[in-house]
Amino acid sequence: MLDHVQRFGHQGLSVLTGFGRAGIVLWQSMWGAPDWRAGPGLLIRQLYFIGVYSLVIIVVSGVLIGMVLALQGYTVLVRFGAESALGQFVSLTLLRELGPVVAALLFVGRAGSAVTAEIGLMKATDQLAAMEMIGVDPLKRVVRPRLWAGIISMPILAQIFNMVAILGAVVVGVNWLGVDAGSFWANMQNTVEFREDVLNGSIKAFSFGVVVTWIAIFQGYDAIPTSEGISAATTRTVVHSSLAVLAMDFLLTAVMFGVD
């Protein structure tokens, strides 16, 4: 019995120290004077690898999900003769929920795991230690550009996802299934509120970006510097980030749309 209590206590403490280290990594890498001598090049480089590289999967998935939504929505709505509400159904679903969440999950798989593996590998091959020996703080030089690139990229990717998904829904709903284009757009515009739906969705995407990138850089920085350690850290990044995104989505939805 006492043994169980003791083990439980140990686990609790190790979870706490994990959060503590993660918080320190976030704090030290996020703030402080920017490295002017390195210029904006480091950030642009990471925006390229984290943002631009994720674009293909985001656009393709977005179009497909928009098309599926339109198809499913149409078959239900047409039974009530309400197929003109397709635009509103698709756009609200995407802007409030699917856009930020699915884009974040894709971002975890594409960019988050890559960031963890890259930082973990730099640690395993002593590159981070070598940087410290040269007198450069790897948190600032290596981690910070990746952190900011992730935070900047995520909302952009989510909005691009929303746009192509709505366009995909237009193709299926209006061009193939024959929903009237005028009522499709008009219904959408009447119900979608910029502040309520678009901005709240962006806030969600931004929060997901912070959390996912934070988890990815921490898991890489904290990885055990061996091949097994890196692969375990990459798995942890995907699992923890996905769960964090879904849990945060519930909380944010409850706060934003839950109670009037």
Partner: peptide, 21 residues
């Protein structure tokens, strides 16, 4: 990267004007 940022701004404009009216 510039094109990526612009695409993001275009997406936001699209959502603001065409989708939310």
């Amino acid at each position: 990267v510039g094109a990526f940022m612009l695409l993001g701004i275009a997406a936001l404009a699209f959502l603001a004007i065409q989708v939310s009216g």
